[in-house]
Simulated assay, not measured.
Amino acid sequence: MPVLAGAEPFTHSGSTEVGVLLCHGFTGTPASMRPWGEHLAAEGFTVRCPRLPGHGTTWREMNRTTWTDWYDCVDAGFAALRGECESAFVFGLSMGGTLALRLAQRHGADVSGLVLVNPSVTTLRKDAKLLPVLSKVIPSVKGVAGDVAKPGVTEIAYDRTPVRAAASLSVLWRLVRAELPAVTQPLLLLRSVVDHIVEPVNGRIIMDRVGSANRTEVLLRDSFHVATIDNDAPEIFERSVEFVRSVRQVGAR
């Protein structure tokens, strides 16, 4: 299956001291993470950003995948990174944040820290409760891509939402919510004040329920959902590097 131009996965081999796994969002692609990855690479970090199964091709192919396929992909990427680097951090956007939380729940202290941008663990949309039924009769609905405030910036993502895949995402949300207290790693959560895709309740649930003693929330005031390619991207990049260095410094004491 041909991959959309710009949607390719990417890696950068830098320091063996710090590695970062980047996880993109639902119906999105590594393109939304590439500027972040380039910034991290310039700081000398080793970077991996896989393309999740069913993403970056067609929404129809994505409908043939489930959350376990997406998780297995990032899990393999994390295992490879952990084998290369002393410290392995996981950064995620939207559903990529959900997957990052799942990695933290499953791998414990092997995950050195988490940086989440507009992560999702639920939705207030009433029709979401009907997803298991709708997925059997409706292949797709209008897409959620392109929620960017910055003029002239386009997200490489599907213009349709595959409903069976969305139903599977809701299963992942339930699992991650149930085990949030198991997330004890240092956590930096960056949340857009105006986000037309992920409601503010997601950030509140995560910040209230995780077991992390070191957890910080930062509000992004000039970006919409895909903040990693929006006006606040430089702040995200800089704060994430500061976070990694602060965690490493504390760990060295």
Rank of each mutant, 00 (worst) to 15 (best):
S87N: 09
A88P: 10
F89A: 07
V90R: 11
F91R: 04
G92N: 08
G92F: 08
L93F: 07
G96M: 08
T98N: 09
A104N: 03
Q105H: 06
Q105V: 06
R106A: 15
H107D: 05
H107G: 04
G108R: 11
D110C: 04
D110I: 00
V115P: 07
V117L: 11
V117P: 09
P119Y: 12
V121N: 05
V121E: 02
T122Q: 13
T123V: 08
L124Y: 01
K126I: 01
P132D: 07
P132A: 10
S135W: 04
S135I: 04
K136D: 02
V137E: 04
S140R: 03
K150F: 07
K150P: 11
A157I: 07
V163P: 11
V163K: 05
A165P: 09
A167E: 09
A167M: 04
L169D: 04
V171Y: 05
L172A: 15
R174A: 15
A178D: 03
E179Y: 07
L180A: 13
P181S: 13
T184R: 14
Q185E: 03
Q185T: 10
P186A: 00
P186Y: 00
L189N: 05
L190P: 13
S192V: 06
V194P: 01
E199R: 10
V201T: 09
N202S: 11
D208V: 02
R209A: 14
V210W: 00
G211T: 11
